[in-house]
Amino acid sequence: MKATIADLQNWTGVHRNKLRTLLADLPTEPGGPRGARLYESSQALQAIYQPGTDRLDPAVERAKLDEARRLEIEARLAKQRGELLDAKEVSAAWSYEASLVRSHLLQLPSRAAPELLSLDGLKPIEDALRGHVYAALESLGRGEHSPDWPGQTDQAA
């Protein structure tokens, strides 16, 4: 029986480019639909499934499929046990945390400015700024997610 590359692809599930490579040394005949080359199906299937370096080996392909299925099952079980998190959820959580850090950092100038006006010298200014940064970090570390973090009040009002 004669078969085209499209027929062999339907029968085997192997991509047409791979089939062309596997069948490159087989004789063909013209005359298929739209000028397609025709292969003797018994020779073509033998060439496709013949064990060797470039050929498909059913045992090797079955082992690859079994390995892929095993990895898929392990991932599903790890997710059910809570050992594996959904990437979208992790990304959303990190985005939220980054926005909290950003809001705390953006508040530093307005919180520190009134206090810094009354200070003289570089050391007191550095200490005051360091205190505000540590207060923001402590607030974030305690899980206080309000952008209006407590502990500091405007004293220059």
Rank of each mutant, 00 (worst) to 15 (best):
L106D: 10
G151Q: 12
A3T: 09
S99K: 12
T21E: 15
K2P: 11
D148T: 05
R69M: 06
Q152N: 14
L65D: 10
L77Q: 15
G31A: 08
E115G: 07
L26P: 10
E72G: 04
L117A: 07
E40N: 15
D66C: 02
K123R: 09
S99Y: 06
S95P: 01
K2M: 07
T12K: 05
A36G: 02
Q9I: 00
H145I: 12
R102Y: 08
L106C: 07
E83Q: 14
E61H: 06
A112I: 03
R81D: 15
V90I: 13
A63D: 10
Y49D: 00
T28V: 13
L122P: 05
G13L: 11
W94M: 14
K64Q: 10
T28R: 12
L105A: 13
A63K: 09
A92N: 12
R69Y: 07
E144Y: 08
A136E: 00
W11P: 02
G151I: 08
D86P: 14
G143C: 03
Y134V: 11
D7A: 03
D57W: 01
D7E: 08
E61I: 10
T153N: 07
Q80V: 04
L108V: 11
V101C: 00
D57C: 07
V101Y: 06
S110F: 06
V133A: 02
P114Y: 03
W11F: 13
G52W: 08
A78F: 04
D148C: 03
R76N: 02
L140D: 09
T53I: 10
E89A: 13
A87D: 06
Q50P: 03
K123N: 06
R16G: 03
A78V: 03
E67H: 07
I5N: 00
G143M: 00
A78L: 12
G82L: 00
L119K: 05
A3E: 02
L85H: 09
L8H: 03
D57Y: 02
S91W: 04
S91F: 02
L65K: 14
L108I: 15
A47L: 05
R20K: 15
A93N: 09
S118D: 10
H145C: 02
M1P: 10
G13V: 11
Q43R: 13
K64V: 07
L105V: 15
G82N: 06
P124M: 04
T12I: 00
S146H: 11
H15L: 06
M1A: 03
D66V: 10
G131N: 03
Y39P: 03
A68R: 12
S42V: 14
L122H: 11
K79I: 04
